[in-house]
């Protein structure tokens, strides 16, 4: 509170950081690598199955989940996506899962012997399980968008049965997201320049900003509608791509699904560990 200007600067910085975060993911998604070239449908379905396989593990399971890290690691490596960037984004959204999971050690104090002579509380184990699942599912989702352009994902969703009207909403939202974020950023800057270190945005100022922004939005929508009509729009947003799944897509899908199934059915680490101990002993 000693430096109200500082507080406001932080708000602005958060805004710009969030904006550039989306921008970076978005730019990554237009790269050209073998992973980016895969059909969006194949990637969406594989990622979905990955998430379902991961969360289907029982609550105390930690070790059997570890092989699943191979999937995001491979996607990131083949798709040329910086791992640190993804890891930071995963950490940034973790608070809710951590908050809820944190109670497990408190409410589940029973202990368990994991190694001869070494005991761990069951609650910590289930907390660890939540964290591992969290890291897996969130990184898979982020890697999906980092390796597939959003319009590509939308085409995939449309082919997978999502209503066209909903898909065109997604596309419009994506298209104008960046335009409106910039507009909002200009408004925030103008506000900050004129508020000369007084208190941060109160609700009243926010309401005014949001109201103005909404009216500008409506006017923009009217201009867009005019531009659509000028180019023959008559009620439905047309689309024509009809790509078929190609061999690499099928190979990718079959390989990842078999991998998930294997890791789900067989406790891979335990098996490898047994073999390892067999060899050693």
């Amino acid at each position: 509170m000693g430096d109200p200007g500082g507080a406001k600067r932080t708000i602005l910085l958060t805004f710009e950081a969030a904006y550039s975060g989306i921008g970076r993911l978005d730019r990554l998604s237009y790269r050209d690598t073998p992973v980016h070239r895969l059909d969006p449908r194949a990637k969406v379905v594989a990622t979905m199955l990955f998430v379902v396989a991961v969360v289907s593990f029982p609550r105390y399971e930690v070790l059997s989940l570890l092989p699943f890290f191979l999937f995001p690691a491979l996607i990131a490596a083949l798709g040329d996506i910086p791992g640190g960037f993804i890891a930071r984004k995963v950490a940034a959204v973790s608070p809710f899962a951590v908050f809820v999971g944190m109670f497990n050690p408190l409410f589940d104090p029973g202990t368990v012997e994991v190694l001869p002579g070494v005991s761990v509380s069951a609650g910590w184990l289930s907390f660890a399980s939540i964290l591992v699942k969290f890291a897996l599912t969130i990184s898979a989702a982020l890697l999906l968008i980092a390796t597939t352009s959003f319009p590509g994902i939308c085409r995939g969703l449309r082919r997978l049965g999502m209503p066209p009207l909903f898909v065109s909403q997604l596309l419009f939202l994506y298209r104008y997201l960046f335009v409106l974020l910039e507009e909002a950023m200009r408004v925030v800057r103008a506000r900050d320049m004129r508020s000369f270190g007084s208190r941060g945005t109160g609700m009243r100022v926010f309401v005014r900003i949001a109201g103005t922004l909404f009216l500008r939005t409506v006017e923009r929508a009217e201009r867009i509608y005019g531009a659509m009509l000028a180019r023959g729009f008559h009620g439905e947003v047309p689309s024509m791509r009809r790509e078929e799944l190609r061999l690499p897509d099928a190979v990718f899908l079959v390989a990842s699904v078999s991998f998930f199934a294997l890791c789900r059915a067989v406790p891979v680490p335990e098996t490898i560990g047994r073999v390892f101990r067999g060899l050693a002993g």
Binding site: P151, I224, V237, M240
Partner: peptide, 17 residues
């Protein structure tokens, strides 16, 4: 306002479609 589709291709194709 003129370019309302998600990619340049889709946008140019909008009218002809």
């Amino acid at each position: 306002d003129q370019l309302f589709m998600p990619t340049v291709f889709d946008d140019v194709a909008f009218g002809p479609l």
